[in-house]
């Protein structure tokens, strides 16, 4: 019975990644290699981030919100962006259109994130006898994270890979990328600073991820038009 629950939560956490891969043209163009490379880059980035966090951050005794520490954490969080830049711009991919490249990178990125952060707690916790909503919410969070990662990858590809984009859109692209990249800090502020509960945070994440996805989609198609 509890294995059943674990199975459910695993479907919710990792299912959308698989569905995304198989439903979109990614599977047709065999972009799995790109996703795997992105996942490896994510792992390396996570390692660097961990070391930075351990070096520069004090261990807080209380669970309170410390602006200075949070700022530092947000800055360290931008290492993610650097990693993503590396994955998008520096890694040599096989002939792959920009359109698919950012999707594949975002997908690999989000999947690696889910595996690293959610698989072990799920395995340990969701198989236990005690029922909580936490693991279902965590699965929903993974979905929001997938959308956000792909949005960020889309914005990144607009910033770094596309040369001829409308001048007026550039600041908007940068602002949006900034917002998406600071999402972890924003949620952390909501949780610690405002004392929001987990369900509310997940709701917020889902909502913002959909909004950001819509905006970046619009930006992407706006940039695509002149080139067509």
């Amino acid at each position: 019975m509890t294995l059943f629950h674990f199975f459910n939560c695993a479907i919710l956490t990792f299912g959308p990644h698989a569905v995304y891969y198989s439903a979109t043209p990614l599977s047709e163009y065999d972009t799995l290699g790109t996703s795997i490379k992105a996942a490896v880059v994510y792992l390396a980035t996570a390692l660097v981030k961990l070391i930075c966090l351990a070096t520069f951050l004090k261990v807080s005794e209380s669970d309170s919100f410390d602006p200075y520490q949070e700022l530092l954490k947000a800055l360290i969080g931008f290492i993610d962006v650097a990693g993503l830049y590396f994955a998008l711009a520096q890694l040599t991919h096989r002939n792959i259109s920009q359109n698919h490249k950012f999707q594949a990178v975002g997908l690999g990125w989000a999947f690696a994130d889910s595996v690293l952060h959610r698989l072990a707690p799920l395995w340990v916790g969701a198989r236990g006898l005690e029922f909580t909503w936490d693991y279902i919410l965590q699965g929903l969070e993974a979905n929001a994270n997938l959308v956000l990662s792909i949005s960020l990858a889309a914005l990144g590809s607009l910033m770094w890979l596309r040369k001829n984009k409308p001048k007026t859109l550039i600041p908007i692209i940068y602002v949006c990328a900034g917002i998406v990249a600071t999402m972890p800090s924003i949620t952390s502020y909501l949780r610690r600073g405002l004392g929001w509960h987990f369900p509310k945070i997940v709701g917020f994440e889902l909502f913002t991820s959909l909004v950001m996805a819509f905006i970046s989609w619009q930006l992407f198609s706006a940039c695509q038009r002149p080139s067509l």
Partner: peptide, 21 residues
């Protein structure tokens, strides 16, 4: 003392998740 979910709840959840996917 564990608060446990029922099998029917799990089945329902599976259905919901399946249709979502």
């Amino acid at each position: 003392i564990y608060q446990v979910a029922s099998v029917t709840f799990d089945l329902l959840l599976l259905l919901v998740l399946g249709s979502y996917l």
